[in-house]
Design a protein around this nucleic acid. Structure first.
Lengths: 182, 182
DNA sequence: AAATATACTTACTAATAAGTAAGTTCTTGA
DNA sequence: TCAAGAACTTACTTATTAGTAAGTATATTT
């Protein structure tokens, strides 16, 4: 796997997560990398292929990370999860779900399918962490597991959006609130 | 103010909130309304003017609504607020903040400015409602007012996104959880 | 050494985008 | 009734888009 391919994906991901999928062109990738437009098409024939590759990579990375986190306590797992969002925020990016989800109807079919898989994977993992914490008597909340998981993941997702729009650190506010309600 | 102008804005809003700002063109508006491309430009010279008009209208509508809600109890105010999101969900739309926020960097300056104003207006209103509820002994939570307000607004915002992506009613899940944690 | 595959560049195409200038029709108030 | 403005249409332009076909240099394999 070439270095150029990875550079293209990294830059495209950055563009998607700051400007959106429809707001960048192959020129925005080829110019900074000092390659020709057709070189991007060589690695990713269609823009949809590039988009899909980025979602797939994110899914794989998440699988690897959660695998690594398996020995951690539920609290530490949640902390590690929140930390992903913190890293995004530091780079002024929203998460890929927040970037692509709102324009779902305008995405190519392959990207839609990958995105749906990813969303349910993340929500399922979070439910398992909350269940584990509840079973071990570490977490205590009145909502159901599903409710709590969705409350947390939605709060993190749009705190990145609102951090950029409102120009305040909404992620910080929200992530301080999460452990208080557990 | 002509009927066409309103029709253009309504359709453009629908397009923004399902496909995104960069994923629709003036043709997507002129064709269904059976008018010419230049007719759209007559009412909104640049696409940025159309975008700004939609955000401004949403702000004005929110101001009118919250004004109407003034006599309501904090619980009812919150209920009415959640209901806005429910109506969006029924039309398979995300809210305008969720639609435009993630591509903030690629938006025209006038839209950015309006969006920032809107986000802080909504957050401020919600903080006031929560404060009122706390003062009246109706709400009881361990988080600060700011934390609680941001937790609620972020949960609602991205529950619309996740409802579309995951194809489950995440808004329903999340809005059931909100009163449980008050 | 020859053949082959990889990773590109050069040089395009066809479609679509936003936007404009000039003309037309319709409405309305003086 | 007529002059003026509002609400368009016609007919463009210019720029950008994704995408492709054909060629080239450089490794790698046989």
């Amino acid at each position: 796997m070439s270095n150029t391919r990875t550079k293209i994906m990294n830059l495209a991901e950055k563009l998607i997560r700051t400007k959106g999928y429809h707001a960048f062109s192959y020129k925005d990738i080829s110019a900074p990398l000092q390659i020709k437009n057709a070189a991007v098409h060589y690695h990713f024939p269609a823009k949809a292929d590039l988009g899909e590759a980025i979602i797939s990579r994110t899914i794989r990375t998440f699988e690897l990370q959660t695998e690594e986190w398996k020995p951690l306590s539920p609290e530490k797992k949640l902390e590690a999860f929140i930390n992903i969002y913190r890293e995004s925020k530091e780079q002024n990016m929203v998460c890929f779900m927040g970037a692509l989800g709102p324009s779902y109807d305008s995405l190519p079919d392959n990207m839609k399918a990958e995105l749906t898989i990813a969303s349910n994977q993340i929500r399922l993992w979070l439910r398992e962490v909350l269940q584990e914490g509840k079973d071990k008597g570490l977490f205590d909340f009145s909502e159901t597991i599903e409710e709590k998981a969705d409350t947390i993941v939605t709060a993190l997702l749009s705190s990145l959006i609102l951090s950029i729009v409102s120009q305040e650190d909404v992620l910080q506010t929200v992530s301080k609130a999460i452990p208080k309600a557990l």
